[in-house]
């Protein structure tokens, strides 16, 4: 009986130590583990012009523009701060106003020059009719409509 208790205690202590070590390592590498910064966090960090990083947030309503030559400009917001983004390339299917996005690139003269834009969707799942019904009641808190539904608004 005594030996079993000793083994139990040993394993418990070992796990405790391991947990603390993991916590320390993870906090130390926080910067690298964070996949993207929100616009507010980006303002706090004020990165240099050659620092590669990612920003994430929602595409601000009415901010999407296509000045030509395959370039897209839009604004990413976390409702507190906004960052203008400039991107040339293929946009994911889900990209539209009100949708979550993550852009990777560099800050240049207050504009984020993006090399890659990924769509980030939320954790809500429901059929289109249910989404429509909720929108009609004005209680909609989720992200944008199905792709193509917002085309009627843009130029």
């Amino acid at each position: 009986m005594k030996r079993k208790h000793k083994r139990l205690t040993f394993v418990f202590i070992a796990l405790l130590l391991l947990g603390s070590a993991a916590a320390l390592v993870l906090t130390a590498f926080e910067d690298n583990i964070v996949f993207f910064y929100s616009p507010t966090e980006l303002a706090e960090k004020s990165p240099g012009p050659n620092q590669r990083l990612r920003i994430g947030g929602l595409v601000e309503d009415g901010s999407v523009a296509k000045p030509g030559d395959g370039v897209v400009t839009f604004k990413i917001t976390d409702t507190a701060s906004t960052v203008p983004v400039r991107y040339k390339g293929i946009l994911p299917d889900l990209f539209r106003e009100g949708q979550g996005v993550v852009a990777e690139g560099r800050m240049r003269d207050g504009v984020f020059q993006a090399d890659e834009v990924l769509a980030k969707h939320d954790e809500n799942y429901m059929p289109p009719e249910v989404a429509e019904a909720i929108k009609k009641t004005g209680q909609w808190k989720g992200q944008g409509d199905a792709p193509g539904a917002a085309q009627g608004k843009s130029e």
Binding site: F35, F36, V102, E123, N124
Partner: peptide
């Protein structure tokens, strides 16, 4: 952490999304 993968949909506060 901020991740690309979305948060939990089933086992979360407030019930399943």
């Amino acid at each position: 952490w901020n991740t690309l993968h979305q948060p939990a949909s089933v086992i979360k506060m407030g019930g399943p999304a």
